[in-house]
Design a protein around this nucleic acid. Structure first.
Lengths: 211, 211
DNA sequence: TAGATTGTTAATCGATTAACAATC
DNA sequence: TAGATTGTTAATCGATTAACAATC
């Protein structure tokens, strides 16, 4: 299949989550406007996304929830080969994200957490054992980890991200405020303070971009 | 000034942070390509952003760091009237974000945190006292809080976000996986699992959108 | 002057939305 | 049939990038 637009992939993730909830409620089909309403987007956008992944619905019943979930899962996490995730830096943010992962029904598998604090190494966080950052390469290779969540203090961000890449990780989410650049790696950056300051700007009455 | 593009505002926040660091190092002027390099973006983008906020540099020395920081601060957080922030739901994520705020040099002021757990109410988190969610409206009005960070469990997201709006909060960052819709409020949603699943998709070899 | 830089418009790219044909 | 729905192309919107004039 052709590469999907980034925004479409993001919505697919959300479609799957709410569809799973509907399925659990016993619903088996859904119309584009119903799915749209659950996510506060437009029905056209839903239909276009579904078109892009090659699924088709019926005029009478809409989309088959079960089929749609299966297809999205095939696209996002490729049921055949499970993708393993590591959290690197298990401070407060790392632990918070860990809980998010455990509470979600994502198909991605959290395999390991890493830290350089001796008190943390060897202990278990919500069922996942913490390794030393020195053993990153060894564990990443052994567990087949491909995705890393970077939540170390900013001063270590650059060094540790390079280690992650060298260990074979191909996708990194960088939660530190340090801007990174890693060739050959899909890098997603999220900046907490920048998000807050953006909201501050658009919340000011004179910038009323109210939604 | 005309309303700035969202992405420009985000970059302004990052410009300010790295410029402050340069200023602390004793640098007083900076060229667009230097600033660009610090954030791994292009010099054109830097110049265009700076043009949009009406600052001008000189051909010989580039931009005055001090002036640029002052101007960005004026735009983002309006030095005249400080904006107050509240964190609503002080679980692990709320506490992690609180630390990010305290470690940053943002001009935004964290005034209060809220939770409904009796054990938490009245205790202090990194120097900020926790109030009951029932007293949200009272405290928001008293402290002049305009921005709220929503980090409650998903089942409370909708109800609490409505309370925040009714209390007078005009900008909300929603970290719960529940999609919200609030008229008359600037709402920014961040979905941890969606971000991870997006990275999973683009990290797969066949989707090599490697950057 | 030559080279490096800023400032700005026009072109391009990516994503959303409008419009509408086809179908049950 | 009439009304509701899906599927899809074209138009629009927002953001980035290319191109280049002006300046020191």
């Amino acid at each position: 299949m052709k590469l999907l637009p980034e925004r479409t992939v993001e919505r697919l993730s959300k479609y799957r989550r709410v569809l799973q909830r509907e399925l659990d409620n016993g619903t088996d089909h859904i119309y584009s406007h119903e799915l749209a309403k659950l996510l506060h987007i437009t029905p056209v956008q839903v239909r276009r996304d579904i078109m892009l992944i090659g699924h088709t619905g019926t005029l009478r019943k809409g989309y088959s929830i079960d089929n749609l979930i299966k297809l999205i899962s095939e696209i996002i996490d490729c049921s055949s080969s499970v993708q393993n995730v590591a959290i690197v830096g298990i401070g407060k943010l790392g632990q918070a994200l860990l809980d998010y992962l455990n509470d979600s029904n994502t198909k991605l598998n959290l395999s390991a957490v890493f830290d350089n604090n001796p008190d943390k190494i060897g202990t278990s966080y919500s069922g996942t054992v913490c390794y030393s950052i020195e053993s990153l390469k060894k564990i990443v290779e052994r567990e087949g980890i491909t995705i890393g969540i970077l939540t170390v203090p900013p001063e270590f961000a650059k060094e540790v991200s390079t280690m992650m890449k060298d260990a074979g990780i191909v996708g990194i989410i960088n939660y530190t405020p340090v801007s990174l650049k890693l060739d050959g790696t899909f890098l997603e950056e999220y900046d907490v303070i920048t998000t807050l300051e953006k909201v501050a700007y658009f919340s000011k009455p004179k910038n009323a971009k109210l939604l």
